[in-house]
């Protein structure tokens, strides 16, 4: 099944709407490990992405490119910059071709590797990279939006639990790794929360599954 510009645009819109609810929740999670602004930063970044009008993009590559540029202009934070660099990678990889939902696992895998090279984190450091890695594995072979969404959400919840009692080895939390045991990494949590928004059955969900 083809992944379309329209689906990307609807996803961004829904994520932007959901940040009203998620902003302070993610800030609170970040306050335990960082400086308490992950939610506000993502709310600003996703609002900027929605304002970049991905629905007007000429192609999937153009849509991802618009989102990447909007994200890069909206923040210089580590997490925001990494998210934007992943979208830039998706834009470059999808240039000049149609994209199927079954391609998504390979596309995210390349983006994940690019994020590792840019940010210096490794798998197992308890970062957003571990979340993306779990998604890459889980959605391999899935061919439609519905099953990609469902398996990604399951994998992300499982990864949160799996990493909760491990120490953070990257970002500000690496300086007090022992104290990070028992706490969710805010970037990983943001990934899981936003995936649920994208995959949920709420208003507009049919756009993602048709």
């Amino acid at each position: 099944m083809e992944l379309t510009v329209f689906q990307i645009a609807v996803g961004v819109r829904r994520a932007a709407d959901a940040m009203d609810r998620l902003e302070q929740e993610l800030n609170a999670a970040d306050a335990k490990l960082g400086d308490g602004d992950t939610g506000s930063m993502l709310a600003r970044v996703i609002a900027a992405m929605a304002a970049a009008e991905p629905q007007a993009a000429a192609s999937v590559s153009d849509a991802f490119g618009r989102l990447a540029r909007a994200g890069m202009s909206a923040t210089g934070s580590s997490l925001g910059t990494l998210f934007a660099s992943a979208l830039l990678s998706l834009s470059k990889q999808t240039k000049g071709r149609e994209i199927q939902w079954s391609d998504l696992s390979d596309l995210i895998a390349v983006a994940r590797d690019g994020m590792m090279a840019r940010g210096g984190a490794k798998l197992g450091d308890k970062t957003v990279l571990d979340a993306l890695d779990a998604v890459v594995v889980a959605i391999a072979g899935r061919t439609d939006a519905g099953s990609v969404g469902a398996t990604a959400c399951e994998a992300l919840d499982r990864t949160l639990v799996e990493f909760r009692d491990r120490p953070c080895r990257m970002g500000r939390a690496k300086f007090f790794a022992g104290k990070s045991v028992g706490l969710d990494d805010p970037g990983m949590l943001a990934c899981a929360s936003l995936a649920k928004v994208l995959a949920s059955e709420g208003a507009g969900a049919h756009y993602l599954t048709t």
Partner: peptide, 15 residues
């Protein structure tokens, strides 16, 4: 000096 938001790095354009 490139200036980010509060406690966030400056964005690439500012750099």
């Amino acid at each position: 000096c490139a200036i980010g938001n509060v406690f966030e790095g400056p964005n690439i354009d500012s750099c």
